[in-house]
Simulated scan of single mutants.
Amino acid sequence: MKLLILGATGPTGRHVVDLALRSGDSVTTLVRDPSALGDLTEKVTPFTGDATSHRDIVAAAAGQDAIVSALGRGSSVRADGLFTQASAAVIGAAKEAGISRLVWLSSFGVGETFDRSSAAQKTIFRTLLRSIYADKRIADDRIRSSGLDWTVVYPTRLTHGPAKGTYSADDRLPMKGNPTISRADVAAFMHQAAHGSEWLHRSPVISD
């Protein structure tokens, strides 16, 4: 499968790239600084550009089968419009490039999932993550109404632990406290979702 991966140099995106390469996928990345790919540079097709740029995404998306976005703000608690701008650019570019499949990384607590959060989670979502989650909600709603074959993924709190492969994934999951899931497991789920139809037009919650 030919995949365009956004956010490839981030902690979750790097796992997606590694999994895709190991499974024999052809990987294209769109990154601001190709040198940040390190040893991946010779294994992928790198495009230099911005994930909020329609023009840059169209160039990188040519000939791809699917787009997988693992875009994130790192340790920042400010969205700065990243997700709203990137979602608009990705949707327009996907349609122009003739790509229907999109797997998009969001966060549990965004949009309707907030109502299903635990008390501990709600406190964090209302305060520390308020800006980012507001931006993500607009992006997620836009993707769901895009007409693309989308999957919007809602992981609980991300960790840097190893993949366990024992996580739960469903349209709804019961929440208690502040559960976690490793970025490696999230990447595995996203990669699998891109290759199958089980999660088409669904917004799965995933957690350990």
Rank of each mutant, 00 (worst) to 15 (best):
A139H: 00
S168H: 14
L102H: 09
L148V: 10
K95D: 02
T84I: 11
D170M: 07
A89Y: 02
D115P: 02
R73F: 00
T45E: 14
L6Q: 04
V27N: 11
H54I: 00
W150G: 05
R202G: 05
A79N: 04
L6T: 05
T123F: 13
G111Y: 04
K95C: 11
S35H: 11
R144N: 07
R144E: 15
H54T: 05
G38E: 12
V110F: 03
D141Y: 04
K136S: 01
R202F: 09
D208W: 05
P204R: 03
I57C: 09
D171A: 10
P204M: 03
T28S: 15
V153S: 09
S207Y: 00
D141P: 02
R78I: 10
G81C: 12
S75Y: 08
R32E: 04
I124E: 08
R101Y: 06
V31D: 04
L71R: 05
V16Y: 08
E96P: 00
A20M: 06
G49R: 01
D135Y: 10
A97V: 10
A119P: 10
P34S: 08
A194V: 13
A194S: 15
D135I: 09
L37I: 01
A193P: 13
Q192F: 11
S168T: 13
V17F: 02
R55A: 15
L158Y: 01
T48D: 04
W150D: 04
D140G: 12
P174G: 07
G196T: 15
Q121V: 01
S146T: 03
N178S: 14
L19H: 11
R202K: 15
A70R: 02
R22E: 15
S53R: 12
P174E: 05
